[in-house]
Design a protein around this nucleic acid. Structure first.
Lengths: 267, 267
DNA sequence: TTGTGTGAAGGGTTTCACAGCT
DNA sequence: AGCTGTGAAACCCTTCACACAA
């Protein structure tokens, strides 16, 4: 997760936990699938399985929305679809602009699940004059000179940044200045925005690195099945205990659970 | 966030919290930028600002890795880059396959930050015979019939799924059967995998829906600045209090904080 | 009898604030 | 004097387990 700025200090009741909000789209997707198969009701158990969570969590989540659901029976699918949609603000439609129409921008523009659920691609914007007018996914690309005009004319409040990292901040600044208050950032940079603007980021490289971390763990686990896998370092010890490594040492006492810096850096 | 399966019940010491792991790539990126500018040391304050977190969190995070850093001075940039890289498992290289070479798959294949940090695109795989042999981002696409062979020959343990949702689960099953133990899923589906396999997902539509939720909140806030914004529903009340709405009612007593279902569903 | 709704317990994460090293 | 490293407090989220409604 990664929302940019504050979200008010929980105004007492009616404050749905952020973790719950993040799962509502999951439930909605599962419910929509059930709805299409004309399933009238689901139990928390079934729906939870379809959404990939456990049923206690799902029930807790729904309890924040209200007491939809019937004891002994389950939840009315259509009714829940509507309630969650409303809660998420999907009963109105949200015009969205995508800035940066490279491979990724094009992929996003063509993404189906987009139009389907309350979102509408209002404009595609790119800085390359050669792109201007070229249709991508059926929508003509507009030049970034017109960014402000597009935003204000269409009343766009959500912007997607799919530009190179180098220009992401300035694109962001222009979007915000023009009135955008929610940004989905695909560029691998930290964006800074004023209070009241939400930023969420999607970052391939971060996700891969997290996977690599766990992958490495698995590899280290094949040997030393029971006890604490890696060698060195006792649990409670706050002591020094410098590991016997090759580092081009200068002074003493840098400690760490394992491995010191090698003479030649691999990066 | 969304890792698929369990992560062992925290084997006592040496267990870096998941939240910390998720931030290490952020620190690493900020540090790499400093390193390129030949900055020798940073304080927790400066680095935290660059990574978009607060300094207390950063220091806590680093404390799980060990006591790198010098009181009164800060952290040695190069040294930290190495330590974090090692912790994340980026000192070895990870061959990755991308399955599904549409717009998105192509974007991922061409993504720069990929090769740079320990990851190597070992193969691009697509089910469309017309794609076979065609180079994308300089790498020839291979047919999905050869998926198992490719995985085992290259010792691939990380797979990226960029296929349509409909085939994602079967692709996932084949990847896992062939030996992949970490999956990054871009398809909008819940994947089920056996224990020991990690799944992380990236989902545009979910991110947008979360933004829409907050966007809706902001809109509702312009009026009713001080008190609890929305009408209806007292804090402590567990009571019924059915709202005066139009729902094609059948029986009594469905309650919720606000709004009932309209006669005509918008979705 | 079935399955929701929810207090209470249990973990995990963030923030605070300051002791301690340089 | 400055900045790290870390117990302790506060907060948030998840899980448990059961009362209660249909």
């Amino acid at each position: 997760m990664a929302t940019g700025r504050t979200h008010r200090p929980a105004t007492r009741s009616r404050g749905i936990p952020e973790a719950t909000v993040a799962r509502l789209p999951l439930y909605l997707r599962a419910l929509t699938a059930l709805s299409e198969r004309s399933v009238p009701t689901v139990s928390s158990e079934e729906l939870a399985a379809a959404a990939g969570v456990n049923s206690a969590k799902l029930r807790k989540d729904f309890s924040y929305l209200g007491s939809y659901g019937t004891r002994g029976v389950g939840y009315d699918v259509e009714y829940l679809v509507y309630q969650i949609s409303r809660e998420l603000g999907l009963t109105q439609d949200w015009p969205v602009v995508i800035v940066g129409i490279g491979n990724l921008g094009a992929a996003l523009a063509g993404y189906g699940g987009f139009a389907s659920r309350g979102f509408r691609v209002a404009a595609l914007i790119d800085a390359d004059p050669a792109m201007t007018g070229k249709p991508v996914a059926g929508i003509p690309v507009q030049h970034s000179d017109d960014l402000e005009k597009i935003i204000s004319e269409d009343g766009v409040s959500i912007g997607v940044i799919a530009t190179p990292a180098g220009v992401a901040q300035q694109v962001c600044d222009r979007l915000v200045a023009a009135g955008v208050t929610s940004i989905l950032n695909f560029a691998p940079t930290v964006l800074s925005v004023p209070d009241g603007v939400d930023v969420r980021k999607v970052d391939l490289s971060i996700e891969l690195q997290i996977l690599a971390f766990h992958e490495q763990r698995k590899a280290g686990e094949e040997l030393g099945a029971e006890a604490g896998a890696e060698p060195s370092a006792e649990p409670g010890a706050t002591a020094a205990a410098v590991p016997p490594a090759a580092r081009a040492a200068e002074d003493a006492g840098r400690k760490g659970p394992d491995g010191d810096m090698p003479a030649v850096m691999p990066a």
